[in-house]
Protein backbone atom coordinates (compact mmCIF):
# COMPACT_ATOMS: atom_id res chain seq x y z
CA UNK A 1 0.00 0.00 0.00
CA UNK A 2 2.57 2.69 0.93
CA UNK A 3 4.63 4.28 -1.78
CA UNK A 4 7.43 6.78 -1.46
CA UNK A 5 6.35 9.25 -4.14
CA UNK A 6 5.02 12.68 -3.20
CA UNK A 7 1.40 12.32 -2.32
CA UNK A 8 -1.40 14.37 -0.87
CA UNK A 9 -3.64 12.65 1.68
CA UNK A 10 -7.17 13.96 1.97
CA UNK A 11 -9.16 12.98 5.05
CA UNK A 12 -12.88 12.99 4.35
CA UNK A 13 -14.66 11.84 1.19
CA UNK A 14 -17.54 14.29 1.35
CA UNK A 15 -18.01 17.14 -1.07
CA UNK A 16 -14.95 19.04 0.12
CA UNK A 17 -12.65 16.01 0.09
CA UNK A 18 -13.78 14.80 -3.31
CA UNK A 19 -13.44 18.28 -4.79
CA UNK A 20 -9.94 18.70 -3.38
CA UNK A 21 -8.80 15.29 -4.58
CA UNK A 22 -10.25 15.67 -8.06
CA UNK A 23 -8.59 19.08 -8.50
CA UNK A 24 -5.21 18.29 -6.97
CA UNK A 25 -4.77 14.81 -8.45
CA UNK A 26 -4.40 16.41 -11.86
CA UNK A 27 -0.95 17.63 -10.73
CA UNK A 28 0.11 15.15 -8.08
CA UNK A 29 -1.03 11.81 -6.70
CA UNK A 30 -3.73 11.90 -4.08
CA UNK A 31 -5.41 9.51 -1.73
CA UNK A 32 -8.74 9.99 -0.02
CA UNK A 33 -9.55 8.48 3.33
CA UNK A 34 -13.00 8.15 4.83
CA UNK A 35 -14.31 6.51 7.96
CA UNK A 36 -17.45 5.36 6.15
CA UNK A 37 -17.41 2.52 3.62
CA UNK A 38 -18.72 4.86 0.88
CA UNK A 39 -17.81 8.30 -0.36
CA UNK A 40 -20.32 11.16 -0.21
CA UNK A 41 -20.20 12.08 3.49
CA UNK A 42 -23.45 13.47 4.86
CA UNK A 43 -25.02 13.69 1.38
CA UNK A 44 -24.57 10.00 0.64
CA UNK A 45 -23.06 8.41 -2.46
CA UNK A 46 -26.18 8.74 -4.61
CA UNK A 47 -26.24 12.53 -4.61
CA UNK A 48 -25.69 13.72 -8.23
CA UNK A 49 -22.93 16.14 -7.25
CA UNK A 50 -21.15 13.41 -5.31
CA UNK A 51 -21.37 11.05 -8.28
CA UNK A 52 -19.94 13.66 -10.64
CA UNK A 53 -17.03 14.42 -8.32
CA UNK A 54 -16.34 10.73 -7.73
CA UNK A 55 -16.16 10.11 -11.48
CA UNK A 56 -13.67 12.97 -11.77
CA UNK A 57 -11.59 11.45 -8.98
CA UNK A 58 -11.57 8.10 -10.75
CA UNK A 59 -10.51 9.77 -14.00
CA UNK A 60 -7.42 11.24 -12.33
CA UNK A 61 -6.70 7.98 -10.44
CA UNK A 62 -7.38 9.10 -6.91
CA UNK A 63 -6.67 6.25 -4.52
CA UNK A 64 -9.58 5.62 -2.11
CA UNK A 65 -9.20 4.20 1.39
CA UNK A 66 -12.74 3.74 2.61
CA UNK A 67 -13.95 2.33 5.94
CA UNK A 68 -10.59 3.65 7.07
CA UNK A 69 -9.73 6.03 9.90
CA UNK A 70 -6.76 8.39 9.83
CA UNK A 71 -5.63 8.52 13.46
CA UNK A 72 -2.21 10.21 13.65
CA UNK A 73 -0.23 12.61 11.49
CA UNK A 74 3.51 13.11 11.91
CA UNK A 75 4.14 15.74 9.24
CA UNK A 76 5.28 13.20 6.66
CA UNK A 77 3.20 10.09 7.31
CA UNK A 78 -0.32 9.31 8.39
CA UNK A 79 -1.46 6.26 10.36
CA UNK A 80 -4.35 4.61 8.54
CA UNK A 81 -6.53 2.02 10.25
CA UNK A 82 -8.84 0.11 7.94
CA UNK A 83 -9.90 -3.20 6.43
CA UNK A 84 -6.49 -3.96 4.96
CA UNK A 85 -4.63 -3.35 8.20
CA UNK A 86 -2.91 -0.61 10.16
CA UNK A 87 -0.30 1.21 8.10
CA UNK A 88 1.89 4.27 8.34
CA UNK A 89 1.36 5.82 4.93
CA UNK A 90 3.73 8.49 3.61
CA UNK A 91 2.26 11.77 2.43
CA UNK A 92 3.73 15.20 1.79
CA UNK A 93 0.65 17.07 2.97
CA UNK A 94 -2.47 16.21 4.92
CA UNK A 95 -5.73 17.91 3.98
CA UNK A 96 -8.42 17.76 6.62
CA UNK A 97 -11.85 17.86 4.98
CA UNK A 98 -13.89 16.14 7.65
CA UNK A 99 -16.64 18.73 7.84
CA UNK A 100 -18.11 20.00 11.03
CA UNK A 101 -19.79 18.83 14.20
CA UNK A 102 -22.08 20.69 16.57
CA UNK A 103 -20.53 22.32 19.63
CA UNK A 104 -20.57 20.15 22.74
CA UNK A 105 -22.42 21.03 25.92
CA UNK A 106 -19.20 22.45 27.41
CA UNK A 107 -18.37 24.43 24.27
CA UNK A 108 -21.89 25.90 24.30
CA UNK A 109 -21.34 27.01 27.88
CA UNK A 110 -24.33 24.96 29.04
CA UNK A 111 -23.62 24.04 32.65
CA UNK A 112 -25.08 21.11 34.54
CA UNK A 113 -24.34 17.42 34.66
CA UNK A 114 -23.88 15.12 31.72
CA UNK A 115 -27.45 13.84 31.56
CA UNK A 116 -29.12 11.17 29.47
CA UNK A 117 -31.27 12.73 26.77
CA UNK A 118 -28.72 15.41 25.89
CA UNK A 119 -27.33 14.31 22.53
CA UNK A 120 -25.27 15.77 19.71
CA UNK A 121 -27.46 16.12 16.62
CA UNK A 122 -25.58 13.57 14.47
CA UNK A 123 -26.23 10.93 17.16
CA UNK A 124 -29.85 12.01 17.58
CA UNK A 125 -30.47 11.81 13.84
CA UNK A 126 -28.99 8.29 13.59
CA UNK A 127 -31.01 7.06 16.55
CA UNK A 128 -34.22 8.68 15.37
CA UNK A 129 -33.76 7.15 11.93
CA UNK A 130 -33.46 3.78 13.70
CA UNK A 131 -36.88 4.60 15.23
CA UNK A 132 -35.55 5.32 18.70
CA UNK A 133 -37.96 7.80 20.31
CA UNK A 134 -35.62 10.46 21.65
CA UNK A 135 -38.18 12.10 23.90
CA UNK A 136 -41.76 13.22 24.27
CA UNK A 137 -40.72 16.86 24.50
CA UNK A 138 -37.68 17.45 22.35
CA UNK A 139 -35.76 20.73 22.40
CA UNK A 140 -33.35 21.42 19.57
CA UNK A 141 -30.62 24.02 20.05
CA UNK A 142 -29.69 25.51 16.67
CA UNK A 143 -31.40 26.30 13.40
CA UNK A 144 -29.19 25.02 10.57
CA UNK A 145 -28.91 21.74 8.68
CA UNK A 146 -28.66 19.59 11.80
CA UNK A 147 -31.72 21.15 13.40
CA UNK A 148 -33.74 20.60 10.24
CA UNK A 149 -32.53 17.04 9.81
CA UNK A 150 -33.31 16.30 13.46
CA UNK A 151 -36.83 17.66 13.03
CA UNK A 152 -37.25 15.64 9.86
CA UNK A 153 -36.07 12.44 11.56
CA UNK A 154 -38.42 12.77 14.54
CA UNK A 155 -41.37 14.23 12.62
CA UNK A 156 -43.50 11.08 12.86
CA UNK A 157 -42.55 10.29 16.49
CA UNK A 158 -45.29 12.55 17.83
CA UNK A 159 -43.04 14.60 20.11
CA UNK A 160 -43.67 18.20 21.06
CA UNK A 161 -40.76 20.12 19.54
CA UNK A 162 -39.12 23.35 20.65
CA UNK A 163 -36.32 25.22 18.94
CA UNK A 164 -33.73 27.52 20.48
CA UNK A 165 -32.46 28.94 17.19
CA UNK A 166 -29.77 31.26 18.62
CA UNK A 167 -30.77 33.55 15.78
CA UNK A 168 -33.67 35.91 15.33
CA UNK A 169 -33.73 35.74 11.56
CA UNK A 170 -37.31 35.13 10.40
CA UNK A 171 -38.32 31.62 9.47
CA UNK A 172 -35.32 29.85 10.99
CA UNK A 173 -37.38 27.68 13.33
CA UNK A 174 -40.23 26.90 10.94
CA UNK A 175 -41.80 23.54 11.57
CA UNK A 176 -41.18 23.45 15.33
CA UNK A 177 -44.10 23.63 17.75
CA UNK A 178 -42.46 26.49 19.61
CA UNK A 179 -39.44 28.70 19.12
CA UNK A 180 -37.37 30.93 21.42
CA UNK A 181 -35.44 33.35 19.24
CA UNK A 182 -33.02 35.61 21.10
CA UNK A 183 -32.76 33.25 24.10
CA UNK A 184 -29.70 31.15 24.74
CA UNK A 185 -29.36 27.95 26.78
CA UNK A 186 -27.39 28.17 30.04
CA UNK A 187 -28.09 25.01 32.05
CA UNK A 188 -29.57 21.53 31.95
CA UNK A 189 -31.21 20.01 35.00
CA UNK A 190 -32.61 16.59 35.80
CA UNK A 191 -32.04 13.42 37.76
CA UNK A 192 -31.76 10.29 35.66
CA UNK A 193 -32.34 12.17 32.41
CA UNK A 194 -32.70 15.77 31.38
CA UNK A 195 -35.93 17.31 32.67
CA UNK A 196 -35.38 21.01 32.05
CA UNK A 197 -33.37 23.33 29.85
CA UNK A 198 -32.87 26.78 31.33
CA UNK A 199 -32.73 29.68 28.87
CA UNK A 200 -31.51 33.21 29.50
CA UNK A 201 -32.07 36.55 27.77
CA UNK A 202 -31.14 40.00 29.12
CA UNK A 203 -30.83 38.72 32.68
CA UNK A 204 -34.19 36.91 32.57
CA UNK A 205 -34.54 33.12 32.73
CA UNK A 206 -37.05 30.82 31.16
CA UNK A 207 -37.45 27.10 31.88
CA UNK A 208 -38.32 24.66 29.13
CA UNK A 209 -39.59 21.32 30.37
CA UNK A 210 -38.20 18.63 28.09
CA UNK A 211 -36.85 15.08 28.11
CA UNK A 212 -34.42 15.47 25.23
CA UNK A 213 -32.04 18.27 24.26
CA UNK A 214 -30.42 18.00 20.85
CA UNK A 215 -27.23 20.01 20.34
CA UNK A 216 -27.34 21.21 16.73
CA UNK A 217 -25.70 24.64 16.89
CA UNK A 218 -22.43 26.50 16.53
CA UNK A 219 -20.68 24.15 14.14
CA UNK A 220 -17.02 23.52 14.77
CA UNK A 221 -14.59 21.80 12.48
CA UNK A 222 -14.56 18.08 13.21
CA UNK A 223 -10.93 17.25 13.87
CA UNK A 224 -9.74 13.99 15.25
CA UNK A 225 -6.42 13.20 13.62
CA UNK A 226 -3.77 13.59 16.32
CA UNK A 227 -1.05 15.89 15.05
CA UNK A 228 -3.51 17.76 12.84
CA UNK A 229 -5.74 19.51 15.33
CA UNK A 230 -4.46 23.09 15.49
CA UNK A 231 -3.92 25.46 12.58
CA UNK A 232 -0.14 25.41 13.07
CA UNK A 233 0.15 21.63 12.62
CA UNK A 234 3.07 20.88 10.28
CA UNK A 235 2.17 20.18 6.63
CA UNK A 236 -1.53 20.04 7.44
CA UNK A 237 -4.23 22.18 5.83
CA UNK A 238 -7.81 22.44 6.99
CA UNK A 239 -10.61 22.80 4.47
CA UNK A 240 -13.67 22.87 6.65
CA UNK A 241 -16.09 25.63 5.81
CA UNK A 242 -18.01 26.51 8.97
CA UNK A 243 -21.47 28.09 8.97
CA UNK A 244 -24.81 27.28 10.60
CA UNK A 245 -26.18 26.39 7.19
CA UNK A 246 -24.20 25.63 4.05
CA UNK A 247 -25.31 24.58 0.58
CA UNK A 248 -23.52 21.85 -1.35
CA UNK A 249 -22.40 24.43 -3.90
CA UNK A 250 -20.84 26.61 -1.21
CA UNK A 251 -18.81 23.67 0.08
CA UNK A 252 -17.57 22.77 -3.40
CA UNK A 253 -16.67 26.39 -4.09
CA UNK A 254 -14.65 26.66 -0.87
CA UNK A 255 -12.81 23.43 -1.64
CA UNK A 256 -12.02 24.55 -5.21
CA UNK A 257 -10.60 27.78 -3.91
CA UNK A 258 -8.46 25.92 -1.36
CA UNK A 259 -7.27 23.52 -4.06
CA UNK A 260 -6.27 26.41 -6.31
CA UNK A 261 -4.29 28.00 -3.47
CA UNK A 262 -2.60 24.72 -2.61
CA UNK A 263 -1.86 24.09 -6.26
CA UNK A 264 -0.18 27.45 -6.79
CA UNK A 265 1.73 27.09 -3.51
CA UNK A 266 2.98 23.66 -4.64
CA UNK A 267 3.93 25.09 -8.05
CA UNK A 268 5.87 27.93 -6.40
CA UNK A 269 7.58 25.50 -4.07
CA UNK A 270 8.73 23.32 -6.94
CA UNK A 271 10.26 26.19 -8.84
Amino acid sequence: MPTTEAKIAVVGAGLAGLTLASELAQETSALVIDRLPMYGGVLGYEHPLVRTLARRCEAVRVEFHLATTATRWEGHRVLLVGPTGIRWTPATRLLIATGTRPSTQAEMGISGERLAGVLPAPVAIHLAEAEVTLGHRVTVVGWGNWANRTLEAIRHHGAHTACIPLSDAPGVADGFDESWPGWYPVRVEGRSRVERLILAKDGAEHVIECDAVILAAKPRPLRNVDGAIWPDSPSATFIQPVAESLTAEEVVEAAKKAAAELGSRAAMGSR
Binding site: A116, L127, T133, G135, S192, R193, A212
Partner: peptide, 22 residues
Protein backbone atom coordinates in the same frame (compact mmCIF):
# COMPACT_ATOMS: atom_id res chain seq x y z
CA UNK B 1 -31.03 -4.49 24.84
CA UNK B 2 -32.53 -2.35 22.07
CA UNK B 3 -30.70 0.98 21.58
CA UNK B 4 -33.38 3.12 23.28
CA UNK B 5 -32.89 1.14 26.51
CA UNK B 6 -29.13 1.58 26.63
CA UNK B 7 -28.09 3.65 29.59
CA UNK B 8 -26.24 6.90 29.14
CA UNK B 9 -25.30 9.59 31.63
CA UNK B 10 -25.64 9.48 35.37
CA UNK B 11 -28.19 7.52 37.38
CA UNK B 12 -29.23 5.19 34.64
CA UNK B 13 -31.01 7.49 32.17
CA UNK B 14 -31.49 5.87 28.77
CA UNK B 15 -30.64 6.97 25.23
CA UNK B 16 -34.27 7.04 24.18
CA UNK B 17 -37.67 6.92 25.81
CA UNK B 18 -39.20 4.31 23.54
CA UNK B 19 -39.44 2.93 20.05
CA UNK B 20 -41.48 4.49 17.28
CA UNK B 21 -43.75 1.71 16.07
CA UNK B 22 -43.89 2.06 12.33
Amino acid sequence: QPPECIRHGGFGGTLGVGHADY
